[in-house]
Simulated scan of single mutants.
Amino acid sequence: MMDPVLEQLEDDYGDRIKFGKLNVEDNQDLAMNYKVMSIPSLVLFRDGKAVEKVTGLYPKEKLAAYLDRKLAAE
């Protein structure tokens, strides 16, 4: 569902942002740890710590604008 968007964003951001995905059915403990209650959910990490969660399906442009704001805040 989000795979094509995330793959495009991964190409666009290169080394500035690392993207990964997790099957919550196979990793229920980890999903509960990060309070993932619905999918798709994106958990943003900074320095190895979860700092924010985004839930829902978003177009590439909206996610890119969101990530750009996060990068600018660094």
Rank of each mutant, 00 (worst) to 15 (best):
K35C: 06
E52D: 13
L42C: 13
L30K: 11
L30S: 04
K21F: 00
K35Q: 14
I39T: 10
P40M: 02
V51T: 08
A72K: 08
Y13N: 03
K18F: 06
V24C: 15
L57S: 14
T55N: 08
Y58V: 06
E7A: 13
Q8T: 14
Q8P: 05
L30I: 14
M37K: 11
D68K: 08
A31Y: 05
M32L: 13
K70Y: 04
D29G: 07
N27G: 12
L6I: 12
S38M: 14
I17H: 03
E7Q: 14
V43L: 04
F45W: 03
Y34A: 05
S41G: 00
R16G: 09
E25S: 13
I39K: 04
R69Q: 09
A65T: 10
S38N: 14
K21C: 00
S41F: 01
D26R: 15
P59L: 05
M32P: 04
Y13D: 00
G14M: 05
K21N: 02
E10G: 07
T55P: 01
P40C: 01
L67F: 15
R16D: 14
M32S: 13
P59N: 03
N27S: 10
D26V: 11
D12W: 01
V43Q: 08
K53L: 06
E74N: 15
I17R: 04
R46T: 06
V43I: 15
M1D: 13
K49F: 06
R16M: 12
Y66G: 02
Y34P: 00
Y66C: 01
E25G: 14
D3R: 10
L67M: 07
G20R: 05
V36M: 03
V54D: 03
I39R: 01
D11I: 05
Y34S: 04
D15A: 09
K35E: 14
T55M: 09
L6G: 02
S38W: 05
R16V: 12
L63V: 11
V24F: 12
I39S: 03
L9T: 03
K53C: 02
F19V: 09
L71C: 04
K49T: 11
P59G: 02
A73E: 15
Y66L: 09
M2L: 11
E61T: 08
V36D: 00
L9E: 09
N23S: 08
V36A: 03
N33P: 00
A73K: 15
K62Y: 06
V36N: 01
D3N: 10
A73Q: 15
A73T: 14
L67R: 05
D68S: 06
L63I: 14
P4E: 02
L22E: 11
L9W: 09
D26W: 12
L9F: 08
D29W: 01
T55A: 12
E10K: 13
L42A: 12
L42K: 04
V54Q: 10
K35H: 14
D68F: 04
T55G: 07
L42P: 07
K60M: 11
I17A: 00
K35T: 12
V43R: 06
A64I: 03
F45Q: 07
N23M: 06
N23E: 11
L71H: 08
Y58L: 07
L22T: 13
L44D: 03
K18N: 10
